[in-house]
Protein backbone atom coordinates (compact mmCIF):
# COMPACT_ATOMS: atom_id res chain seq x y z
CA UNK A 1 0.00 0.00 0.00
CA UNK A 2 1.24 3.45 -0.79
CA UNK A 3 1.55 6.49 1.38
CA UNK A 4 -1.03 9.22 1.46
CA UNK A 5 -0.86 12.76 2.85
CA UNK A 6 -2.40 13.02 6.29
CA UNK A 7 -2.23 15.63 9.01
CA UNK A 8 -2.45 15.49 12.77
CA UNK A 9 -4.97 17.49 14.81
CA UNK A 10 -2.90 20.65 14.77
CA UNK A 11 -2.40 20.54 11.01
CA UNK A 12 1.16 19.19 10.82
CA UNK A 13 1.90 16.67 8.11
CA UNK A 14 2.25 13.04 9.13
CA UNK A 15 2.58 9.93 7.04
CA UNK A 16 0.85 6.62 7.37
CA UNK A 17 2.53 3.50 6.11
CA UNK A 18 0.47 0.33 5.86
CA UNK A 19 2.33 -2.93 5.36
CA UNK A 20 0.48 -6.11 4.70
CA UNK A 21 2.70 -9.00 5.78
CA UNK A 22 0.06 -11.60 5.10
CA UNK A 23 -3.72 -11.77 4.99
CA UNK A 24 -4.02 -11.79 8.79
CA UNK A 25 -1.04 -9.66 9.73
CA UNK A 26 -0.80 -5.95 9.07
CA UNK A 27 1.41 -3.20 10.35
CA UNK A 28 0.53 0.49 10.46
CA UNK A 29 3.24 3.05 11.07
CA UNK A 30 2.48 6.70 11.68
CA UNK A 31 5.55 8.92 11.34
CA UNK A 32 5.49 12.48 12.53
CA UNK A 33 7.62 15.23 11.09
CA UNK A 34 11.19 15.61 12.35
CA UNK A 35 12.18 18.30 14.82
CA UNK A 36 12.64 21.44 12.76
CA UNK A 37 15.97 23.20 13.08
CA UNK A 38 14.15 26.54 13.36
CA UNK A 39 12.29 25.41 16.46
CA UNK A 40 15.50 24.24 18.11
CA UNK A 41 17.13 27.58 17.29
CA UNK A 42 14.22 29.58 18.71
CA UNK A 43 14.21 27.65 21.99
CA UNK A 44 18.00 27.77 22.39
CA UNK A 45 18.20 31.44 21.54
CA UNK A 46 15.44 32.37 23.97
CA UNK A 47 17.09 30.51 26.85
CA UNK A 48 20.49 32.03 26.06
CA UNK A 49 19.16 35.56 25.65
CA UNK A 50 17.35 35.25 28.97
CA UNK A 51 20.52 33.95 30.62
CA UNK A 52 22.54 36.76 29.08
CA UNK A 53 20.13 39.40 30.42
CA UNK A 54 20.39 37.89 33.90
CA UNK A 55 24.18 37.78 33.51
CA UNK A 56 24.21 41.44 32.46
CA UNK A 57 22.69 42.46 35.79
CA UNK A 58 24.25 39.92 38.15
CA UNK A 59 27.65 39.50 36.43
CA UNK A 60 27.75 35.91 37.62
CA UNK A 61 29.25 33.52 35.05
CA UNK A 62 27.50 30.54 36.61
CA UNK A 63 24.29 31.77 34.94
CA UNK A 64 25.78 31.34 31.49
CA UNK A 65 27.19 27.90 32.11
CA UNK A 66 23.90 26.74 33.62
CA UNK A 67 22.09 28.05 30.54
CA UNK A 68 24.28 25.89 28.33
CA UNK A 69 23.63 22.93 30.56
CA UNK A 70 19.87 23.53 30.61
CA UNK A 71 19.65 23.65 26.82
CA UNK A 72 21.75 20.53 26.39
CA UNK A 73 19.91 18.50 29.03
CA UNK A 74 16.56 19.87 27.83
CA UNK A 75 17.27 18.80 24.26
CA UNK A 76 18.39 15.35 25.36
CA UNK A 77 15.34 14.82 27.54
CA UNK A 78 13.10 16.05 24.76
CA UNK A 79 14.39 13.64 22.14
CA UNK A 80 14.58 10.81 24.65
CA UNK A 81 11.19 11.08 26.37
CA UNK A 82 8.92 13.45 24.45
CA UNK A 83 9.60 13.48 20.75
CA UNK A 84 8.19 10.38 19.07
CA UNK A 85 9.28 9.68 15.52
CA UNK A 86 7.23 6.62 14.65
CA UNK A 87 4.32 4.92 16.26
CA UNK A 88 3.40 1.55 14.94
CA UNK A 89 0.53 -0.81 15.42
CA UNK A 90 0.99 -4.43 14.46
CA UNK A 91 -2.21 -6.43 14.24
CA UNK A 92 -1.86 -10.18 13.99
CA UNK A 93 -5.10 -12.06 13.69
CA UNK A 94 -5.78 -14.62 16.44
CA UNK A 95 -2.56 -13.63 18.25
CA UNK A 96 -2.86 -10.03 19.36
CA UNK A 97 -1.87 -6.43 18.87
CA UNK A 98 1.58 -4.96 19.36
CA UNK A 99 1.90 -1.24 19.96
CA UNK A 100 5.33 0.34 19.78
CA UNK A 101 6.66 3.84 19.64
CA UNK A 102 10.21 4.86 18.80
CA UNK A 103 11.59 8.10 20.14
CA UNK A 104 13.87 10.49 18.28
CA UNK A 105 16.85 9.30 20.32
CA UNK A 106 16.33 5.75 19.15
CA UNK A 107 14.68 4.49 22.33
CA UNK A 108 11.76 2.17 21.72
CA UNK A 109 8.87 1.12 23.91
CA UNK A 110 6.72 -1.84 22.99
CA UNK A 111 3.69 -3.41 24.54
CA UNK A 112 1.66 -6.37 23.49
CA UNK A 113 -2.03 -7.11 24.05
CA UNK A 114 -3.26 -10.67 23.70
CA UNK A 115 -6.24 -11.31 21.45
CA UNK A 116 -8.13 -12.97 24.31
CA UNK A 117 -8.11 -9.68 26.21
CA UNK A 118 -9.22 -7.55 23.29
CA UNK A 119 -12.88 -6.80 22.94
CA UNK A 120 -12.79 -4.45 20.00
CA UNK A 121 -11.05 -1.56 18.32
CA UNK A 122 -13.12 1.60 18.05
CA UNK A 123 -12.85 5.26 17.18
CA UNK A 124 -13.90 7.36 20.15
CA UNK A 125 -14.23 11.05 20.90
CA UNK A 126 -12.55 12.85 23.74
CA UNK A 127 -11.92 16.31 25.04
CA UNK A 128 -8.19 16.97 24.75
CA UNK A 129 -6.86 20.28 26.11
CA UNK A 130 -9.10 22.85 24.47
CA UNK A 131 -10.16 20.66 21.59
CA UNK A 132 -12.48 17.78 20.98
CA UNK A 133 -10.75 15.05 19.00
CA UNK A 134 -11.27 11.59 17.60
CA UNK A 135 -8.87 8.85 18.61
CA UNK A 136 -8.44 5.17 17.98
CA UNK A 137 -8.49 2.90 20.98
CA UNK A 138 -8.45 -0.75 21.95
CA UNK A 139 -11.17 -1.89 24.33
CA UNK A 140 -10.03 -4.50 26.82
CA UNK A 141 -12.32 -7.18 28.16
CA UNK A 142 -13.15 -7.42 31.79
CA UNK A 143 -11.80 -10.71 33.15
CA UNK A 144 -14.93 -11.42 35.20
CA UNK A 145 -17.56 -10.29 32.71
CA UNK A 146 -16.76 -10.86 29.01
CA UNK A 147 -19.32 -8.30 27.86
CA UNK A 148 -18.01 -5.45 29.99
CA UNK A 149 -15.12 -3.15 29.10
CA UNK A 150 -12.49 -2.93 31.81
CA UNK A 151 -10.21 -0.33 30.29
CA UNK A 152 -9.40 1.57 27.14
CA UNK A 153 -5.93 1.73 25.55
CA UNK A 154 -5.58 4.77 23.27
CA UNK A 155 -3.47 4.27 20.15
CA UNK A 156 -1.24 6.79 18.36
CA UNK A 157 -1.19 8.95 21.45
CA UNK A 158 1.63 11.26 20.52
CA UNK A 159 1.03 11.66 16.80
CA UNK A 160 -2.76 12.17 17.12
CA UNK A 161 -3.78 11.65 13.50
CA UNK A 162 -7.01 13.08 12.16
CA UNK A 163 -10.21 11.27 11.33
CA UNK A 164 -9.41 10.25 7.72
CA UNK A 165 -6.25 8.49 8.84
CA UNK A 166 -7.98 6.84 11.78
CA UNK A 167 -10.77 5.54 9.57
CA UNK A 168 -8.28 3.92 7.24
CA UNK A 169 -6.50 2.12 10.08
CA UNK A 170 -9.81 1.24 11.72
CA UNK A 171 -11.16 -0.42 8.59
CA UNK A 172 -8.12 -2.57 7.98
CA UNK A 173 -8.00 -3.56 11.65
CA UNK A 174 -11.65 -4.57 11.57
CA UNK A 175 -11.01 -6.68 8.48
CA UNK A 176 -8.47 -8.72 10.41
CA UNK A 177 -10.40 -8.81 13.68
CA UNK A 178 -13.55 -9.98 11.96
CA UNK A 179 -11.71 -13.00 10.52
CA UNK A 180 -10.89 -14.51 13.87
Amino acid sequence: MGEEAFTDISGKAISLNCQSHSSFCREFTVSSSKVSIGKVLVYTCSVWLLAYTVFFFTENTAVLSSAILITLVGMMLHIHFVKVDHESLLVIGSLGIQVSSSYASGRETTSFIEMSKIKDIVINEAIYMHQIIYYLSVLLKDASDPNAVSSVVPLFQSSKPRMNCLVKVYKSCQEILSKC
Partner: peptide, 17 residues
Amino acid sequence: MGHRRRAAAVNNPSSQR
Protein backbone atom coordinates in the same frame (compact mmCIF):
# COMPACT_ATOMS: atom_id res chain seq x y z
CA MET B 1 -20.08 -10.16 16.34
CA GLY B 2 -17.58 -11.06 13.70
CA HIS B 3 -20.13 -10.83 10.96
CA ARG B 4 -21.39 -7.50 12.13
CA ARG B 5 -17.88 -6.17 12.36
CA ARG B 6 -17.12 -7.06 8.80
CA ALA B 7 -20.33 -5.48 7.67
CA ALA B 8 -19.42 -2.36 9.59
CA ALA B 9 -16.11 -2.19 7.82
CA VAL B 10 -17.78 -2.51 4.46
CA ASN B 11 -20.59 -0.16 5.29
CA ASN B 12 -18.64 2.61 6.86
CA PRO B 13 -17.00 4.17 3.82
CA SER B 14 -20.29 5.22 2.29
CA SER B 15 -21.77 6.62 5.49
CA GLN B 16 -18.52 8.34 6.29
CA ARG B 17 -18.38 10.06 2.96
